[in-house]
């Protein structure tokens, strides 16, 4: 391995979901990204993206089959930044109630729950939630709360694109960065815990608002401010 390698983020390919869109969005805001399942490329990346569409149980099984669970846990423990998207947020939790119960990566203590088909008024809700929804700060001072986080510059009336039947419920509320409401149910739409940032929505499908979030995450977490090569590129 050459010491002077290109800096890149690794989009972890575990056969679930549309990795191509994530790569396109990264490139659009100047992030060099590779789609990979190779341990070595994951180890050498300056940041990890865990995307995902589909079932929780299948996803954990694929990660197990590819022998990626330990390497992800170790890299996160060593401080490498991680961006989780949709199922990639849910997998971080300790467990999911999808089709029985499944153990998750356990990087954030909490559960994954399903939207109920019947809402509080007894009316039938459409599940999955498919479409654009807003995010709100859990604190009263949104500007201060989101400042210096990947949600910097995002406003509470901005819209993001969601597709999901399940949502996360972290045990500790201080990791919740934003919440959203669907059919009367208030749920956690993003988390921030040390080097982990993860969102329930799809920023790569959320127009300029979503691209801003990719840019923020990369600039705040992955870029080495002292690296002269990088400052020239960006």
């Amino acid at each position: 391995m050459s010491e002077k390698r290109d800096q890149y983020v690794a989009i972890i390919d575990y056969k679930m979901g549309n990795l191509f869109s994530v790569k396109q969005a990264c490139e659009q805001v100047g992030i060099k990204a590779i789609v990979t399942e190779k341990k070595e490329e994951i180890l050498n990346a300056s940041g990890l993206i865990l995307p995902g569409v589909g079932g929780f149980g299948d996803a954990m099984q694929h990660l197990r089959d590819l022998d990626l669970i330990e390497v992800i846990r170790d890299e996160i423990a060593a401080g490498k930044p991680l961006l989780g998207i949709c199922l990639g947020l849910q997998l971080l939790m300790s467990e999911s109630e999808e089709f029985g119960s499944h153990e998750g990566l356990g990087l954030i203590e909490g559960k994954v729950k399903k939207f109920k088909l019947e809402n509080s008024e007894g009316r039938v809700s459409k599940v999955p939630q498919v479409g654009w929804n807003q995010i709100a700060s859990v604190r009263t001072k949104q500007e201060l709360h989101w400042n210096q986080t990947p949600l910097q510059h995002i406003k509470e009336d901005d819209y993001l694109y969601f597709v999901h039947s399940y949502f996360v419920e972290p045990t500790l509320s201080d990791v919740v960065l934003s919440q959203s409401t669907y059919e009367g149910v208030s749920f956690c739409s993003s988390v921030l815990k040390d080097n982990i940032f993860a969102v329930q929505f799809h920023p790569e499908k959320s127009a300029s608002v979503g691209l801003q979030i990719y840019k923020n995450w990369f600039t705040q977490f992955c870029q080495e401010p002292t690296n002269k090569e990088m400052s020239r590129v960006f």
Binding site: W132, H153, A207, S208, L211, Q212
Partner: peptide
């Protein structure tokens, strides 16, 4: 309700800070 913003904000091409 729909994804809509006044002042034409949504209509601007990409404007990333």
């Amino acid at each position: 309700n729909c994804r809509f913003k006044h002042h034409g904000e949504i209509n601007k091409p990409l404007n990333i800070c």
